[in-house]
Design a protein around this nucleic acid. Sequence first.
DNA 1: CGCACAAATCTTGTATCCATTATCCTTTGA
DNA 2: TCAAAGGATAATGGATACAAGATTTGTGCG
Lengths: 269, 269
Amino acid sequence: MCGAVYSFVGWPVRDIQLEIQLEEDNCIQNAKQNENLKVASKRAIVRQSLPDAIASDIRERILNGELAEGLTIRQEALAEEYGVSRMPVREALKRLDAEGLVQLTNNLGATVTKHSLDEIGEIFDLRILIEVDLFRRAIAAMTPAHLKRCEEILETMETSYDADDVGKWGSLNFEYHSALYAAANRGLTNDVLHRINLQSDRYVRMHLSVMEQRDPATREHRELLELARAGKTEEACAQLTQHIAQTKTNLLKLMVDKRADEDCESLSR
Amino acid sequence: MCGAVYSFVGWPVRDIQLEIQLEEDNCIQNAKQNENLKVASKRAIVRQSLPDAIASDIRERILNGELAEGLTIRQEALAEEYGVSRMPVREALKRLDAEGLVQLTNNLGATVTKHSLDEIGEIFDLRILIEVDLFRRAIAAMTPAHLKRCEEILETMETSYDADDVGKWGSLNFEYHSALYAAANRGLTNDVLHRINLQSDRYVRMHLSVMEQRDPATREHRELLELARAGKTEEACAQLTQHIAQTKTNLLKLMVDKRADEDCESLSR
DNA sequence: CGCACAAATCTTGTATCCATTATCCTTTGA
DNA sequence: TCAAAGGATAATGGATACAAGATTTGTGCG
């Protein structure tokens, strides 16, 4: 991927998810003129700032695994790739640092954060803690509208199942979970959860990409919805706990092997 | 990790405080610089970057209430106050935005975050959720060393009780809670907790400053330690829940009044 | 008198330039 | 031959300059 032109797209204020269109391009122009690509959004569109656009793209590249753990990131290299000066890249990295995806050291630049296995476990334990609490609060307050929205996302997930786009699947997965808890009406908690998910996402993607089938997860997702619909709070929470814990177990198993391989490599190197 | 490094350390070569003090009157106390000497432990001194120094100071000013909720922050004004260019200030604001203390909007600059009463409630519910979990994990693993450290902090809190420095008290409070959970050995969770505490801190300070006596809180703190020492896990957790919930209740009561007053003012204005 | 449009001003955003710092490599001395 | 010191190089950090967006003010027309 050589160059990237960012196009301004509308996005709801708090929604971190956004889309950047990457194209091959090498002109270093002030690309601020292609903002006319308003993508079918009639809401109050807030244009995304350049640093945010870059941050989103780098974030995606990290989650993809394109920028591997422990890799040191050179501001200038990125700046040239995106055809902008180092300044927006710096701000983007600062943001990602705050999100915990990269680590900024004083005059040494940024490295992609690498979590220990213990920390990965922690992430999932936190998810269980927070998500179950949210779910419990949500179930009592769920309306048909909430259920309907969950249904819709679920169907999207099932149909885009074959797409094998782990990135898309990951964000859909969060969106679904988030929809399950929407009735709890806890924006701030959901934000915290989002940040935490961001950390686990990249490992989940590794998991997904080697997973033969996603049926169990999909089935569990539907079960969660049905239990919620039936108002079986405790069963639903237990199921949710099990669902996340299962992912944690599988993932950690995978990561142990992966890390072991990496250690071998680095030793033999 | 990301959120862990807040206090401390100056810049050996260029003394930032000196430059700042040259800008006479506006008593911008960089308290961090003074802690320079306490490093003692290792030579692994972490030099603080200028943006971090500024971020720490602005953070303190927000928590102090010096920069009130909803206030819009002008980059240039701050830059001039600190005697630096807008660049480090921008990065500092970016950081604070990520921490949730200010909100950055596209071409509109930064405003100090204002939480709704519901959100303040959420913050405390999150604290209960996470802290109780940590405490439960910690109690089983507590060693005499852990208990000793808790004791020390507790004593510091009791002696500095009369100081009436709510800022100091707030960070000591977090430090104590953190020490209680240290045995759980969950760095990442603790970081998340730190961020969340940062949000509640400024409201807690308001609470403290109007509170006649801190005896109940201090007593509860000691009780927590004793219960943990005795290994009474469930009682300890219940006590912790009650401790935080109590703060929440008192605080919300206070905030309801405060917000009501503010609304009156803004209406009559 | 009021509303609307335009210009001026203020504030933020981006680029470029210079200073500072870390790393690497070479050189010198033991 | 190895290690330490010093210099060269490349990357980051910060400042100034300039461009773009937002708000406010002023003027003209209905």
